[in-house]
Design a protein around this nucleic acid. Structure first.
Length: 198
DNA sequence: AAAGTGATCTGCT
DNA sequence: GCAGATCACTTTA
């Protein structure tokens, strides 16, 4: 089952913090691989941890564009990560695709990730997921409406602090399917201030 | 715990 | 323009 392009665009046009948990359990297909999302994080313009926080730049242009497009960025000199752009056109919000279960195209995914990578690790981690999907800088700005399908959904959703960031390290905008094996381990950034104790 | 890697951003000139 | 810091990560210890 799939909804119309207009309805799906409207789905992404909402607040990324609302959209993120609803993406869990959804299927995303690209380049011969389909993943079921198990872990995502929300970012938006009023968020110090977001690339969009300091305004639009050449890199973040897609993030400030219309919703439903893919924002791909390159980091740490070797990794790509992928987001689904959210919010209305002109707002800098997106949902980072952090992990998923490869449910179709395992062979294609393993070809990109490496022959001896176990199924569990094919897309468990944002850069791993992007590599499994065959995404790189050329996919920045690609229209994802039609590539995202509602799956069986998530039986439950957990929320907690986002992984690997130094700013806004206690904002609970990471969402995952509790108990799912295809969720990456939480790692606080070594330079982030100690966790708040509430 | 820290290296590896390079684009990007900031804050100077 | 240019230097220095930073970085939504992965891998190997």
């Amino acid at each position: 089952m799939r909804v119309s392009a207009a309805l799906q665009r409207a789905f992404f046009a909402r607040d990324s913090v609302k959209v993120a948990p609803e993406l869990l359990g959804c299927m995303v297909t690209a380049n011969g691989v389909t993943v079921r999302l198990t872990e995502v994080e929300a970012y938006r313009e009023d968020d110090p941890a977001s690339h969009s926080f300091r305004g639009e730049t050449a890199r973040t242009a897609v993030m400030f564009g219309p919703p439903g497009f893919l924002y791909v960025y390159f980091t740490y000199g070797m990794h790509f990560c992928a987001n689904l752009v959210c919010g209305p056109d002109g707002s800098g919000a997106a949902v980072l695709l952090r992990a998923g279960e490869v449910v179709a195209g395992v062979e294609a995914a393993r070809e990109r990730r490496g022959a001896k990578v176990p199924d569990r690790d094919l897309a468990r981690g944002p850069a791993r997921l992007a590599q499994a999907m065959g995404w790189d800088r050329e996919d920045d700005g690609r229209d994802m409406v039609g590539a995202v399908m509602q799956g069986t959904g998530a039986a439950a959703v957990a929320a907690g602090p986002r992984t690997g960031i130094t700013k806004a390290a206690d904002t609970n905008w990471r969402f995952w399917i509790p108990g799912d094996r295809f969720v990456s381990p939480y790692k606080r950034h070594p330079k982030a201030p100690p966790a708040s104790a509430d």
